[in-house]
Design a binder for these strands. Sequence first.
DNA 1: TTGTGACTTGTAGTCCGTG
DNA 2: GCACGGACTACAAGTCACA
Lengths: 68, 68
Amino acid sequence: MIRKKLGQRIKEKRLQLGLSQEKFALSINMDRTYFASVEKGKRNISILNIEKIAKGLNISLSELFQEL
Amino acid sequence: MIRKKLGQRIKEKRLQLGLSQEKFALSINMDRTYFASVEKGKRNISILNIEKIAKGLNISLSELFQEL
DNA sequence: TTGTGACTTGTAGTCCGTG
DNA sequence: GCACGGACTACAAGTCACA
C-alpha cells in the first residue's frame, strides 16, 4: 500500500518537473527500469534510494511522505 | 548519514514512549537485534519496515522524517 | 517513453547466543 | 537493557532483453 502511494507521489513530483522517467533516473544515477518499477509500487524500496529520489525531486523526505 | 539520523530519531521517539528496544520490537513483530541495528544506523531499512516502526511509534512517516 | 519478467549478487532480516 | 557476533534465509539492488 505505502509502496503504491509513494510511487504515485514520486510520479506526481517528477511530472511537475517536466521530466521523463529516463531523464530523471539518469540525473540521479539510477537505472531507468528500476525507477519505473518504483513508481509503479512494485519494489520495497530502501531508505537510501528514497533519499536519492527525494534529492532529485528537490524536496525533503518529510514532504515526500506528506499525507501518505 | 540518513540512516544514522533516522536511527537517532527512532530512538528518541521510542524513549518518549518509555519502551525498551526489546519491548518495542516485540510490539511491532520485529526482530530485537534487527531493530537495535536500525537504531544504530547500520541498516539500509526498507519502506515497509520504516512504516511498521512509524506505526509502532504512533507517528506519521512525515513526522518521522521531519528535519532529517 | 514506459512497463515487465527474469536473473545474479549483496545485504536485509531472522534466530541463536554472548558479556 | 543493550551491543555484538555467527549462521542462516529471504528479498532488495541492479541490469537486461523485449514489448
